[in-house]
Nucleic acid binder design. Structure first.
Length: 581
RNA sequence: GCACCCAUAGCUCAGCUGGAUAGAGCGCUGCCCUCCGAAGGCAGAGGUCUGAGGUUCGAAUCCUCAUGGGUGCGCCA
């Protein structure tokens, strides 16, 4: 139940009626007619811009349209008042019974309140994390992981059929480096002294992998040339690293539906097939690229390469798919991977990248546009850097990796719930400050605490009602007489709840899960306000020990808030707190 | 040099894909617990939305240019 769409439907119906009455010309387009919460609550519960949007095409004065529409709307029982204001806004005040109905609807739908069929079951693939399998996940990956996961949940809640996917970059040179690094640890496990030169991974996390390799093959690779062991060790190490990454993700309660291996594209004709598909569209040619302007690479020489004419699909320059020696560039398997996703029949694709891949967006979109003939939209969300702080100081150490802060360093210190919530308190394309102390602080300027506290507060109110001997079971609350919720302060909370389905829709449409976090913060604030109002006005307290019916109505409202908080936190992947400690 | 992202209160940030007097937290100022709901609450001050043009009934939001910051720019993925 979305009250805003309901009232918008009413507005449109009455506009049609005005046309039938000859008060509005025929043939008007109502798509731009919006029903929104007014910025200022004094203007009413909802406002519509219908008169202003239609004034021009109808060749009428906005106020004349607004007056006519107001008269029509006022006939409906749901509309208490309809007033024309400002340049032609129509401010609507809704009948109180609607707020009561809304609370009842929340209780009835439970966690599904706000779920919509906006996506109409369309298949959408959300690719995120996709970190190289060369070590544990670090903070940067963590933000992408949390963002992607919340976006996937949000789309699921909005009626899409979502696949959560991880692309394993196990085909390139970096896994050779990994294999050589593991080999060094393997030698070390045999008691040899080894040196980690530039271009190898010195992290401690490879020590157990080296030992495991020793356990598996004994000394078979000792003293052997890399031609003997490289392929084997690479496969072994990649598998171990993916195990590590899966465990890291599990720390954040993330589980992917699919892991797609880059390696599986090689030697199977898949890359060739994807390139061929582009070639058949005349988008592949042999050519020489212009050198980049400004700072030129030292060893620049013009070379002929196989190029993808990405400029025909919005890119700035054409991109190489083959190196001058004839082998594939990293871009080629990426094209093949996205071709595979297109062929798997997704209606929409979403990639979540780190901001350092920003230069990659246009060519990837160009590739998907070309491969799908423009039928499959690709949205690429970039997550900006996370700056870590501790005691107000920039924080850079890592216990495990020596060089970077890992996902586990963060989760170990503050927990999965806090990590997830905080990572979503910024827009994805804005840098994020993550202060280890602030995120654990119990105060209003810590959104995690504030939202969790609101939920816990409701739990505690329910408990208190039970202790007073009042039946606040689900059945009792469903049957509560909500007309006893008569105070505007209580309606205000219900109004905020009414915005939830609309908020979900907007967040889903814009692929912006952070909106959920901000909404929850506001809703929590409203709940806390109502609670505190009970200090001055005892009639507003949730628990009225001598009046079971009133208590049930108030607890019903509080429970409705908890349900929405819980649903919202569910989308963010955060567990609601039953009590604060 | 080019492309993309960003610029909103002293600080950190929202801002509904064009709506009314631009919001929140922190900080600041002022009130509020001898008692029943202060891990605080209420109220107030604080803004030319970086600048200049443009589009229109209407712009923080869209377009152009400028300024400042971030990211990236053939044989690394």
């Amino acid at each position: 139940m979305n009250l805003f769409s309901e009232i918008r439907a009413l507005v449109v119906a009455q506009l049609n009626a005005l046309q039938a009455d000859g008060l509005l010309p025929e043939g008007l387009d109502f798509v731009n007619v919006a029903v929104e919460p007014p910025r200022d609550a004094a203007h009413g519960d909802m406002a519509t811009n219908a008169a202003m949007v239609l004034a021009k095409p109808a060749k009428m004065k906005p106020r004349d349209i607004a007056d006519a529409l107001a008269a029509k709307l006022a006939e409906d029982a749901r509309i208490q008042t309809a007033e024309v204001a400002g340049p032609g806004f129509l401010n609507l005040r809704l009948a109180p019974v609607l707020w009561q109905d809304l609370v009842a609807a929340v209780l009835k739908s439970g966690a599904d309140f706000g779920r919509s069929d906006m996506g109409q079951g369309k298949r959408v693939n959300v690719e995120y994390v996709s970190a190289n399998p060369t070590g544990p996940l670090h903070v940067g990956h963590t933000r992408g992981a949390v963002f992607g996961d919340a976006l996937a949940a949000l789309l699921d809640f909005s009626g899409y059929d979502v696949t959560r996917e991880y692309y394993i970059n196990d085909g390139g040179a970096q896994v050779d480096v990994l294999a050589r690094s593991v080999y060094l640890r393997y030698l070390e496990a045999h008691g040899q002294d080894v040196a980690f030169e530039d271009g190898t991974y010195p992290g401690d996390y490879l020590i157990p992998v080296g030992k495991a390799l020793k356990d598996k093959v004994g000394d078979a690779y000792v003293g052997q040339d890399e031609t003997v062991w490289l392929a084997e060790v690479r496969a072994f190490a990649t598998e171990k690293m993916m195990g590590l990454i899966r465990e890291d993700l599990a720390q954040l309660n993330i589980s992917m539906d699919k892991f797609f291996s880059e390696k599986s594209l090689y030697g199977t004709g898949l890359i060739e097939g994807a390139i061929q598909s582009l070639e058949s569209k005349g988008l592949i040619y042999e050519g020489v690229l212009e050198p980049p302007k400004g700072k030129k690479p030292e060893d620049w020489e013009p070379r002929e390469q196989t190029l993808f004419k990405s400029t025909e699909h919005g890119d700035d320059v054409d991109r190489p798919v083959k190196k001058s020696d004839g082998s594939w560039t990293y871009f080629a398997p990426d094209i093949a991977y996205h071709y595979d996703k297109v062929q798997r029949g997704y209606d929409e694709l979403i990639d979540v990248f780190g901001a350092d891949h920003g230069g990659y967006v246009k060519r990837m979109k160009a590739a998907v546009s070309a491969l799908s003939g423009g039928t499959v939209p690709l949205d690429i969300k970039l997550t900006q850097l996370v700056k870590l702080y501790k005691n107000g100081e920039p924080f850079k150490m890592s216990k495990r990796a020596g060089t970077f802060v890992t996902l586990r360093d963060v989760v170990d210190q503050v927990g999965a719930d806090v990590t997830r919530f905080v990572m979503l308190t910024r827009k994805n394309d804005a840098p994020l400050d993550f202060d280890f102390d602030k995120v654990l602080e119990q105060s209003k300027d810590n959104p995690v605490f504030y939202v969790q506290y609101a939920h816990a507060r409701v739990c505690s109110a329910v408990k208190k009602a039970e202790e007073a001997g009042i039946d606040v079971s689900d059945a009792a609350l469903n049957g509560a007489d909500l007309s006893l919720l008569a105070d505007p302060a209580e309606w205000a909370v219900a109004k905020k709840l009414a915005e939830w389905p609309r908020l979900v829709e907007i967040a889903g449409r814009t692929h912006e899960p952070h909106r959920v976090a901000f909404y929850l913060y506001e809703l929590a604030g409203d709940l806390h306000s109502l609670y505190h109002a009970g200090k001055d006005n005892a009639e507003l307290r949730f628990v009225q020990e001598d009046n079971a019916a009133v208590t049930q109505a108030k607890i019903a409202l509080a429970r409705a808030v908890a349900i929405v908080i819980s649903a919202g936190l569910g989308i963010l992947g955060v567990t609601p707190a039953q009590e604060m400690r």
